[in-house]
Structure formats: C-alpha cells, structure tokens
Write a protein that binds this DNA or RNA. Structure first.
Lengths: 141, 141
DNA sequence: GTTACTGCAAATTGTTTGCAAGGAC
DNA sequence: GTCCTTGCAAACAATTTGCAGTAAC
C-alpha cells in the first residue's frame, strides 16, 4: 500500500482522486511549487479542492511551506521525500538547492539535548546572488 | 546616522516616512508580525506603501519572512536585530525562540564558498514542545 | 528643481465558504 | 447506505498597478 493511502487511512480520511493527484504533482516536481502551478498540474481537480488538499496535507505534515517573496511554495516533507534546503535570492527569487550534512547533525543533537520531539526542520539562506549583487550596487532598482 | 538611513543611502534610495514607520514597527515588535499587523502599526502609511516597503526591505535583506502554519510573518533580519530561530510547535503553534551559535558559523562559511552575499538565514524546527508531547501521549488528538 | 515615492481607487489575483451532487468505503 | 469530499459560484481577502500629487535630496 502506498504511503499516502496508509497515512490517510490512519486518520480515517479517504483516498480520493484529488488527494492522489496533488500528491503526485508534488512528488514529480523537481522544485517547490507555487499553488497556481499545482493547480495546473492537477487538471482533474478543481482549484478549491487543491486548496483544501494542501491545507490538509500541511496539517498532516505531508508538505512543507517555503516562502519566497510574497508567495509560498509547497513541497513534500519529511518521510515523503529526501529533504534539502534552499538558498533564496531576495532580488530575482531564484532558488538554489543545498545539501549541508553538518547542519542536519547539529540540529538533531541540539533537539535531543533540549527534549524537543522534532518532526521536521527547514533551513533557508537568503541573500543576493552574484548577478543581483552587481545590479543593485549600480544604482536604482 | 541610523543604520536604516545609511543603508538606504548606500542604495541611492530615500529615507521616507513610510520606510521609517515600517522599520520602527518591526523594530518594536517582540515577535514576527503578520502583514495586517504591520499595516495597523503604520497609521501614517497607506497599505500600498507598506507592501512596497516590505517588498523593498525583503530585497535589501532588512527583513526575513518566516512561515508559521499557513500564514507568513515578517521580522527584521541580519544586522538590524540580533537574530534567533524558532521552534514551531505543531500542536499548540507556539513559537519558541532558539539560539544555536554553531549553526551560524557553518552557514557563514558555506555562503562564502558560493559567492552569495548572505543577508540572512532562517532556521525553523518543527516538532512538539515538551508540554505537547506529554498531553498528546495521554490521549487522542 | 528633479524625480523617487506616496496615496488613492480600481483592477487583478488569491483564498474561503455554502450547498447540492458525487464518490469512497 | 452513510457520510466524507468535491465542484461550482459567489463572497471575501490579499496584492498589484496607473497616475497625479508630494516630498526627499
């Protein structure tokens, strides 16, 4: 049984088309998706259902929310996908994926020593990429 | 000269009432603010200006965006406030402030190696605080 | 004086809700 | 068959834009 179905069953929730479709869209994505992208990737599901599904998934911890600029992006979290972190350029909003094993370990031992039961974590570095550093230092935006 | 004025000058930007007011609102806040809270704290500035200012501040790295639950909150970042990170309890939604010096150093050296001009970083640990671990283990959710 | 910035109002876009119909179990 | 979910449409909320006036330098 696929993990989504199992998880839904555990919570007495139904394994519906919309939930499968949204899950599949997130699973197939290389990068975190904006809501409108998810909507486009889910032609079988109404926009409203996508919202409701994302809301549910967030509550269940299936997805993580990442903020870039004003908008949020969503990606599978925790047990559903090997996670990574991001470098986010605050000017052009490009996302670069990071993998920093040392951070993972440090966080884990920190949580242990403080009696937190960690279910997830998210690290985001924000700054200016090389290109945007240049254009900003040259005057007006 | 206050740091905001200096920074704006460095970017050939003007030190206006709206920018001062939004900055002051963020500075006086104990916790990250939602946009509507910032708007309320800035009676001299139009809602539109608050948006434009936050947008600018985000680009300049003056503020950081953090996601807690479903909505985003904003707080001063980097050089403008001694920063910290959060443990977000997924049960009671309380934000607990954290301080993890080792992570800071690791992150700094990592950014250097990528030619990124880091303006900030944010680490969010999600999990259950001690209290909620107890109450959850004693009954249903 | 020049021109970046602001406020306003309207346009646009994003999100939620109520309710009847449909689908999962 | 029961009741959770969905789709639709409409309400509601958030964000952006154009433009004329204002303020920073």
């Amino acid at each position: 049984m696929p993990p989504l179905k199992q998880l839904l069953r555990d919570h007495h929730l139904r394994h519906t088309t919309a939930r499968q479709e949204v899950f599949a869209a997130l699973q197939s994505a290389e990068r975190p998706l904006f809501i409108h992208q998810i909507v486009n990737l889910c032609p079988l599901s109404n926009r409203t259902s996508v919202y409701r599904t994302l809301n549910l998934f967030a509550t269940l911890g299936i997805i993580e929310t990442i903020t870039s600029g004003w908008k949020s992006r969503y990606e599978l979290a925790g047990p559903f996908k090997p996670h990574h972190h991001h470098l986010h350029c605050t000017a052009c909003h490009q996302l670069i994926q990071l993998d920093i094993p040392i951070l993972e370990e440090t966080i884990k031992s920190f949580a242990d020593s403080h009696e937190y039961m960690l279910t997830g974590h998210h690290i985001e570095l924000t700054g200016l990429c090389k290109k945007c550093q240049l254009s900003l230092s040259q005057g007006r935006d």
